[in-house]
Simulated assay, not measured.
Amino acid sequence: MRNKIKQLLKKEGGFTLVELLGVIVILGLIVGISIPLIGNVIAKAEGDTTAAQEELVIDAAKMYELQTADIDADGVTTDELITAGFLESDFDGDLTVTKTTVEGKITYVVD
């Protein structure tokens, strides 16, 4: 019994250099694949945020037009919308909404 315990204690187990290199290669492949994918997710999120902000400003301009006056040819800026209370004061962006009418169809464009 004592001999078996000594044999178990003497038996040293561990990873070989080849096994460690294999793990490093696999981790490198995972990182190499995931970094471009994360970059695409970030770029898509930025585009979605811009589109949502533009939609928010257009909605605020429509409410501004309904409650105050018609939007003139110069358009209405986000500063004017903030001053009139249609956008929150912490809105970050310097945009202008212009209104065009073509064949009776009204369109709002953010510049």
Rank of each mutant, 00 (worst) to 15 (best):
K11D: 10
L9K: 12
V18K: 12
E19R: 13
L21P: 02
E19D: 07
I24W: 01
V25M: 15
V23I: 14
L29C: 08
G13A: 10
L37W: 06
I24N: 00
L37Q: 14
V31R: 05
L29E: 05
S34I: 03
I26C: 09
E12F: 06
S34A: 13
V31N: 05
E19L: 08
K10H: 07
T16I: 05
E19C: 11
V23L: 12
G28D: 03
G13D: 03
L37N: 12
G13I: 08
E19M: 13
V31G: 08
L29G: 12
S34V: 01
S34Y: 04
K11T: 15
E19N: 10
V18A: 13
V31H: 05
V31S: 10
V25W: 00
P36T: 04
F15D: 01
L8H: 08
P36H: 08
I33N: 07
I26F: 13
E19P: 05
L20H: 02
L9V: 12
I26R: 04
L9I: 11
E19Q: 15
V18P: 01
L27D: 06
E12M: 10
S34G: 00
G14A: 09
L27P: 01
T16S: 15
G22A: 13
F15K: 05
V25P: 02
K10L: 06
T16D: 00
V25G: 07
V18L: 11
V31L: 14
T16G: 08
V31A: 15
E12V: 05
G32M: 10
G28S: 11
L21S: 12
L20N: 06
L8C: 10
S34P: 00
F15W: 11
I24M: 15
L17Y: 02
G13K: 11
L20W: 00
E12T: 13
L20S: 00
L9A: 10
G22Y: 03
I26H: 04
L8P: 00
L17H: 01
E12I: 12
V31I: 15
L20I: 15
I24K: 03
G14S: 08
I35Y: 11
T16P: 02
G28H: 04
L21K: 07
T16R: 02
I35H: 07
G14P: 04
L20R: 09
G13F: 11
I30A: 14
T16V: 06
L21G: 05
I35A: 13
V25L: 15
L29N: 04
L29Y: 01
G13Q: 10
I33C: 01
G22C: 10
G28R: 05
V18N: 09
E19H: 09
L20D: 01
L21D: 02
G14C: 08
V25D: 05
G22D: 07
I35W: 03
P36W: 07
K10F: 04
